[in-house]
C-alpha cells in the first residue's frame, strides 16, 4: 500500500519531465539547442506564482473547468498500473471508469472553453468533441482486445506481469492493438499529426485553443493535467511492450520509466518528421485506429 502511494507520488513528480524530452528531441531534429529538460516544471511554477485575469464574459464555471479536469485525470491515474504492479484501485471493468473519467475531463474543458464566448474556443471545443467520437470507441475496442487476450477486464489485470505465456502467442494481434492505441495516444494528447501543441493558429488548433483564455493557477492546472494525461496513455503503450518482461521490482520500475522516456523520444521523432494532417483528414486517420481495433478483435475470435 505504502509502496503504491510512493509510486503514485513518483508519477506525479515525473510526468511533466516527458514533455521536456519531447521538446529536446524535436530541437535535436531541427538543429536547435532546445529548452531545458525541466521546462514544464519551470512553466508550472511560474504560473502558480501569478495572479489571475478573467474575462468579463466568463462565469464561475470557467474556474471549475481546470479544477475538475485535473481531478478527473488524477483519479484516472489511481487506476493505472505502474511497471506491471497493480494500481491503487483496481477492479473488474475499471477500464470503463478510466475512459469515462477522461470523458469527464473533456466535458469540463469543453464547457470552460464555451464559457469565454470566443469563436476560436468554440471552434476548438467543437473539434474536440468530434474527434472524441472516433477516439473513444477505438480506445474501448483496443482495450476490449486486450481483455479478450488476457481474460482480465481491469487495467491492472491486463498489464500485470503474471500472464506472459498467453501474450507471446498473440503477437500479430498485439501489433494491431499497438497501432490503434498509438493513434489514440497521439490524438488524446493533441500531438502531431492530429493537433499541433505549439501553434495558436486558429485553423490548426484544437486543444490549445480551448485553453486560450486561461491563465495563472488555472493554466498551471491545465498544463499539469496534460502532463499526467501523457503518462496515462503512455502507460498503456509501454505496458504492452514490457508485458513479457519480468524481473525484480526496482529493475522493472527503472525499465518502465526508461520505456516512457523512449516513448517521449518516439513522439518527438514523429512530430519532427510528420506534418499535421489537414483538419478534414483527421477523422479519416482516427477511423484507422477504430478499424485496426475491430480487425484485431475479430482475429482474436479465432
Amino acid at each position: 500500500m505504502y509502496l503504491k502511494i510512493a509510486q503514485f507520488i513518483l508519477i506525479l513528480i515525473l510526468s511533466p519531465f516527458l514533455f521536456g524530452v519531447i521538446n529536446r528531441t524535436k530541437a535535436f531534429f531541427a538543429g536547435r539547442k532546445g529548452s531545458p529538460l525541466l521546462q514544464l516544471y519551470y512553466d508550472i511554477f511560474k504560473l502558480l506564482r501569478k495572479g489571475a485575469v478573467y474575462s468579463t464574459t466568463t462565469s464561475k464555471f470557467f474556474i471549475a473547468g481546470p479544477i475538475v479536469s485535473l481531478s478527473a485525470v488524477l483519479t484516472a491515474l489511481l487506476l493505472i498500473p505502474f511497471a506491471g504492479q497493480p494500481a491503487l484501485i483496481s477492479f473488474d471493468g475499471d477500464i470503463v471508469l478510466f475512459i469515462y473519467l477522461l470523458g469527464l475531463a473533456r466535458f469540463f474543458t469543453v464547457l470552460a472553453a464555451l464559457d469565454t464566448g470566443s469563436s476560436f474556443e468554440g471552434m476548438g471545443a467543437s473539434r474536440e468533441v468530434q474527434f472524441a467520437m472516433f477516439v473513444e470507441p477505438a480506445l474501448f475496442l483496443s482495450l476490449a482486445v486486450l481483455t479478450r487476450i488476457t481474460g482480465q477486464s481491469s487495467l491492472s489485470g491486463i498489464f500485470s506481469n503474471a500472464r506472459m505465456s498467453s501474450w507471446v502467442t498473440y503477437d500479430p494481434l498485439i501489433i494491431l492493438v499497438l497501432g490503434a492505441l498509438f493513434i489514440v495516444f497521439l490524438a488524446e494528447n493533441s500531438r502531431i499529426p492530429v493537433d499541433d501543441p505549439n501553434t495558436h493558429l486558429e485553423l490548426t488548433m484544437i486543444h490549445e485553443v480551448m485553453v486560450l483564455d486561461h491563465g495563472g493557477v488555472d493554466f498551471a492546472y491545465i498544463m499539469y493535467s496534460a502532463g499526467i494525461k501523457f503518462w496515462l496513455f503512455g502507460t498503456l503503450l509501454v505496458g504492452i511492450f514490457l508485458k513479457g518482461y519480468s524481473c525484480g521490482q526496482v529493475t522493472a520500475s527503472v525499465v518502465f520509466i526508461l520505456g516512457m522516456i523512449l516513448l517521449a523520444v518516439i513522439v518527438g521523432i514523429v512530430e519532427s518528421t510528420l506534418a499535421r494532417l489537414r483538419l478534414l483528414k483527421v477523422p479519416h486517420f482516427l477511423i484507422v485506429a477504430l478499424a485496426l481495433a475491430i480487425v484485431a478483435l475479430i482475429i482474436s475470435m479465432r
Binding site: A52, V53, S55, T56, T57, T116, S118
Partner: peptide, 18 residues
C-alpha cells in the same frame, strides 16, 4: 487555488479576441 490566489490581484478583461 484559494491558498495561492489569496491576497493576489484578480483582474477582469475582455475575452481574447485576436
Amino acid at each position: 487555488r484559494w491558498l495561492l490566489l489569496r491576497g493576489r490581484r484578480i483582474e477582469s478583461a475582455l475575452t481574447w479576441d485576436c
